[in-house]
Amino acid sequence: MTLSVRIIPCLDVTDGRVVKGINFTNLVDAGDPVEMAALYDLEGADELTFLDISASSSGRETTLDIVRKTAEQVFIPLTVGGGIRSVGDVDQLLRAGADKISINTAAIARPELIAEIADKFGSQVLVLSVDARQANTDSGFEVTTHGGREGTGIDALHWVEKACQLGVGEILLNSMDADGTRAGYDIGMIRAIRPVASVPLIASGGAGTLADFASALDAGADALLAASVFHFGIHRIGDVKGYLKGAGYSIREASIQ
């Protein structure tokens, strides 16, 4: 009886489509987030994350619709992030069928939002997304906003410590330096943050080889998020799980029929 490592595909959604050159040739609608969510579920994803990267209000409405449609047919936990600024936004997403929501910029602007959401819905719904990069701060890692384009000067380690006290249920640690490189997760960053995170830690950014997944676990991650390696078909979820199982990690086996 061991808690399994979680493998979490992340779908970046804008105006109803998963973005970038996705190459799922065996799907009818290649970039449809609902179809992709269902496929990843079938392949053994342990959770799913939707990241709404559209800025418009019509994009927001579309995301709610995607969440509703996905929650109808996918019975694994669903996290939704992007543009969440208030308790009302969280309520709307949870009602649409999200199980967890992730916040980033709004929490940096107003940290009390963390406690407000946790008080109303419980810490378990609240994932703090931390987009961090190497910088000249205490821990050597700085929190950024706007997809890593803007620095905040806030030390990532101090921020995670504070967020845990305020009541987040989980930390999603995105390395802006590693993101999209497929050169491996940011092991130094995971090692730095792990000791101050009293909640589960999801590593994100840089997954390339199968060995990269194991390295992030060794550095202290509880769960592993990846996007492009899955979307581009470089690895299937089953490949990652098979590799990790062979390396001695506890994974959730594929579902019963």
Binding site: M1, T2, L3, S4, P77, Q124, V199
Partner: peptide, 28 residues
């Protein structure tokens, strides 16, 4: 590390009705 979050294997007593056919599986 809390919460206990994720999939964990569940070991039911023999003769369990709820776990019939799913005696050695993980739940969220």
């Amino acid at each position: 590390i809390l919460p206990h979050m994720g999939w964990n294997t569940v070991k039911p007593d023999e003769g369990s009705m709820l776990f019939r056919g799913i005696e050695d599986q993980s739940f969220y």
